[in-house]
């Protein structure tokens, strides 16, 4: 049956409109989870607030396990799902830049925009920097192009790369995520005891 767009169950005209509503829901949930606060996001790196880790890990394991079940029930053709192509060196570099940016700025690109919407000044500066970065990247693309396309591995998944069944990956990630929830809760408790000036 699914996915809905490639199988023409939802026409192209509705595609963008539905994407708009999904985007609004995403922004709302980011804000509702407290992601529009730089303290919450940077907290994951300082050890006093792991809400980012929890929310994103929850999203990952729920969608991962859910997709496997949908594929098993025949409601979703897993071979038609878009898989992001892998460029190993540029992806690792990008991840490092993003991680450093999150510690320094206290936002990731999406959350900075939700924070701008609720009127945070620091997020506004972050968003301006974000667009400057996009401009810089676009202008410098001819110099970066070679590195950007290096190490192309195609649309691969971990299952194809290692030959280990998707179920084991899903189970492994879930166990890691669930363990992380409890471990981060313990870390949070210990760190928060030492912080005096900030109330939670």
């Amino acid at each position: 049956m699914g996915p809905l767009f490639p199988n023409n169950l939802i026409s192209g005209e509705w595609n963008l409109l539905i994407a708009l509503f999904i985007g609004m829901a995403f922004g709302f949930l980011l804000e509702a989870s407290g992601f529009s606060s730089a303290r919450n996001i940077a907290g994951a790196f300082y050890g006093y607030n792991f809400v980012v880790v929890r929310v994103f890990f929850t999203a990952v394991i729920v969608s991962m396990v859910g997709l496997l079940y949908l594929g098993y029930f025949g409601w979703l053709n897993l071979s038609q799902i878009f898989i992001l192509p892998t460029y190993l060196p540029s992806m690792i570099t990008g991840a490092v830049i993003m991680g450093v940016g999150m510690i320094i700025g206290g936002f990731c690109p999406g959350t900075s925009l939700t924070a701008v919407v609720i009127g945070k000044i620091d997020a506004l500066f972050f968003a301006i920097g974000l667009y400057l970065g996009i401009l810089l990247f676009a202008e410098g693309y001819p110099f970066l192009e070679k590195f950007y396309h290096a190490g192309y591995l195609g649309h691969i998944t971990l299952t194809e790369l290692t030959g280990i069944k998707a179920g084991w990956w899903a189970f492994g990630f879930t166990v890691i995520a669930l363990a992380a929830f409890w471990v981060t809760a313990i870390i949070e408790k210990k760190v928060r005891k030492r912080i005096k000036e900030y109330k939670f």
Binding site: P6, V62, V65, L68, Y69, Y72, L78, A166, A170
Partner: peptide, 30 residues
């Protein structure tokens, strides 16, 4: 949290026993 953790754990455990359905290649309905 205990309940949710247990539910998620057993759901993930279930994925070990389900096999991926082999869908034969098919042209688009359009």
């Amino acid at each position: 949290y205990y309940i949710l953790t247990a539910i998620m754990f057993f759901l993930a455990l279930g994925t070990l026993f389900i096999h991926e359905r082999k869908v034969p290649p098919e042209i688009s309905p359009g």
